[in-house]
């Protein structure tokens, strides 16, 4: 019995230690190393054969140079700031698009709801890459959107949308929309209709009841949805590299290029550590909010 329990605990535990925690410690260690033209392209490497003296020697060679470098070069500052900006703006846009849809779903007849739910979840199962790719054909200069707008006479010259930040916003809103809709829908669905009736009986207009009752009560869903969009959007790589232009700076893209194109592993690692440090605050806030929500539901 005890042996079995130990086995059950140890197998996934060891797996995660070896393939999640240890790799992260390696990233941290390499972020303190120097770049070198060799294989692997950084120094120092830990030499276990040299024993304790080797370890001390290894420690003395680590430094925070790469982090200092991140603060000195504009590129990284701008990339972090513009990632934050893009993530914030696209989270707000996703909320503005997602809320009315969730609200409509919550007000739809009962027999429609399973179908509507399925229609929201379906895109989530289809390839992320393909959903981003679909917009390349729509947003390009000769693309579908420009053709339609030209034909309708709204514009006389094609708009340049692809390879700009606007395309990145559209891409993020599109791909993360289900993450916003589902938690908001979940709170709106649970909302007690008699509260709205009471508000109207007491002299509220219908829009007044919406602002005073529905919106405040949907707050937990709105907050959860915003975190679920903001956190992955901040480190996004695929969307800025396919839809964004050369001017679109996002930290995920910078990390990728630093690693694959410049082959500067120590700097790429330092970029990763800082990105994680930025993300820890929203992640912890999100977790707290989820816990509070669970306790409130009980």
């Amino acid at each position: 019995m005890n042996f079995r329990r130990a086995f059950l605990i140890l197998v996934p535990y060891m797996w995660l230690l070896a393939l999640f925690l240890v790799p992260f410690l390696i990233v941290f260690k390499i972020s303190l190393s120097d770049v070198e033209l060799s294989i692997p392209p950084y120094t120092p490497t830990l030499d276990f054969s040299a024993g304790w003296a080797g370890f001390k020697d290894f420690l003395s060679q680590l430094d925070f140079e790469n982090y200092v470098w991140l603060t000195q070069d504009d590129l990284y500052w701008k990339a972090y700031l513009s990632s934050l900006q893009i993530a914030v703006i696209s989270t707000i846009l996703t909320l503005l698009v997602g809320f009315p849809i969730a609200y409509g779903m919550a007000n739809a007849p009962d027999e429609w709801r399973p179908t509507l739910m399925m229609l929201v979840i379906l895109p989530f199962w289809t390839s992320f890459l393909i959903r981003v790719y679909a917009w390349m054909g729509i947003l390009s200069n000769e693309g579908f959107l420009n053709q339609v707008l030209l034909w309708m006479g709204v514009i006389s010259e094609p708009l340049t949308i692809l390879n700009t930040n606007s395309a990145v916003y559209i891409g993020i809103v599109y791909t993360y929309l289900p993450f916003m809709i589902l938690p908001i829908y979940a709170t709106l669905e649970k909302l007690d209709g008699s509260l709205l009736e009471a508000a109207e009986d007491l002299g509220c207009t219908r829009s007044g009841a919406f602002w005073l009752v529905t919106l405040p009560l949907s707050r937990p869903g709105v907050i959860a949805g915003c975190f679920l969009v903001f956190i992955p959007a901040l480190g996004e790589f695929v969307i800025p590299s396919l839809l964004g232009g050369s001017g679109t700076l996002m930290i995920g893209k910078v990390l990728w290029e630093e690693f694959f194109s410049n082959r500067d592993w120590p700097v790429a690692s330092a970029v990763a550590v800082v990105l994680l440090a930025i993300l820890i605050v929203p992640i912890i806030l999100f977790q707290r909010q989820q816990q509070r929500q669970q306790e409130a539901d009980r």
């Binding site: 999640f20 790589f237 990390l255």
Partner: peptide, 19 residues
């Protein structure tokens, strides 16, 4: 460790595994 990979940016997970 169960929860963290769900919110970890893919670039970081990928980089750390490669290293």
């Amino acid at each position: 460790m169960i929860y963290a990979p769900l919110v970890m940016p893919e670039v970081i997970t990928g980089l750390s595994l490669l290293l």
